[in-house]
Write a protein that binds this DNA or RNA. Structure first.
Lengths: 177, 177
DNA sequence: CTGTAGTTTCAGTAAAAACTGAAATGTTCG
DNA sequence: CGAACATTTCAGTTTTTACTGAAACTACAG
């Protein structure tokens, strides 16, 4: 399948961005392709379109499946697996946040928790103790809050975000209660 | 300077996390060290403590300075530059978000804007057009909202975050207005 | 069964990123 | 000024990560 210049540039840019955020370039590109395609594609087609090895596509799709960003589907009369992703940006964003939370944030909280629980912790300088505890608390709050956000419907969420400007007032009101 | 086992593990973990988010491991480690140290350190001391080349520290500090995560300071009677970072997690988080916004999000918005403005855009399939536009809109809203958040005082912010659970009600109320 | 189409695995290779040490440059002080 | 100290630059090397292609495996159709 031949890409239009805009699709191609979109995919390349997305790959680049992925790379900057610690996502393998091919993985990000494949995801961008499926996103733009808007319909299930076979691994062969992906490999051909992006000019990468079939095996690379296989590995990358496995990664995307693990993140639940991509689902397998089938086309009548075609034995090959096909792959598709959601066309809803918010849905995708949620899956990514969820994935990073599980893979990076929660292990970090666990490690910080271990430090604090460790008998050695009491020996640390007060400043160090405090900063480690504050770091943990900060991450914990962010996580709880992210969970809260992820639970919302896309529509509700968009409203919350768009409402940003009003948040300050909201907080002021709450303080007065 | 010798690290305690907890400090060492904290720094190593932080380096690892940095790497997963596209930040150079040394850069993240140096930042973690300065964060725990809570006082200005000379580049030599950093190099020695982390067992990395002096030149590596120099490059990494330049990076951290560019992100405004680290400031140069001086100690009486010592000709060497010293470096320190904020001990306030929220402050640090803000700087990181700000940095990523400038380096990655804004360029992405610019690129997507170009696509949409391009004469070729009309030729794209309707689904593709829509998804590109929705992507841009999503990122734009996230950005505006992040700006809003970043403007808050740490204290206010913590309140907003802790209040997460109440957001849903807030939105419901707003809908009724 | 057996052949064919499809997929995955993995050892080896290629590419990218990080890091080092030596040399160059800059700075301060007597 | 010039010696001693401090920092930066950068070519070369090491390390890590990504990618490929061949082989192994799987599933299905005839």
């Amino acid at each position: 399948m031949k890409l239009t210049p805009i699709s191609e540039r979109f995919i390349l840019h997305w790959g680049e961005m992925g790379a900057r955020w610690g996502v393998n370039r091919s993985v990000a590109q494949i995801h961008a392709l499926l996103y733009l395609a808007g319909c299930p594609l076979a691994a062969d087609e992906i490999a051909e379109t992006l000019s990468v090895a079939r095996s690379n596509v296989s590995t990358s799709l496995k990664e995307l499946l693990a993140w639940r960003l991509v689902k397998v589907s089938h086309i009548m009369g075609d034995r090959r697996d096909h792959f598709e992703t959601s066309g809803d940006v918010w849905e995708l964003f949620k899956l990514i946040v969820e994935g990073r939370k599980q893979r990076e944030v929660e292990p970090t909280l666990a490690v910080l928790g271990e430090f604090i629980a460790s008998p050695d912790f009491a020996e640390e300088m007060p400043g160090v103790r405090q900063r480690i505890q504050e770091t943990r608390e900060f991450i914990r709050i962010l996580t709880v809050w992210a969970d809260e956000m992820l639970r919302q419907e896309p529509e509700t969420l968009m409203k919350i975000l768009k409402m940003g400007a009003k948040l300050h007032d909201f907080v002021r009101k709450k303080k007065e209660e």
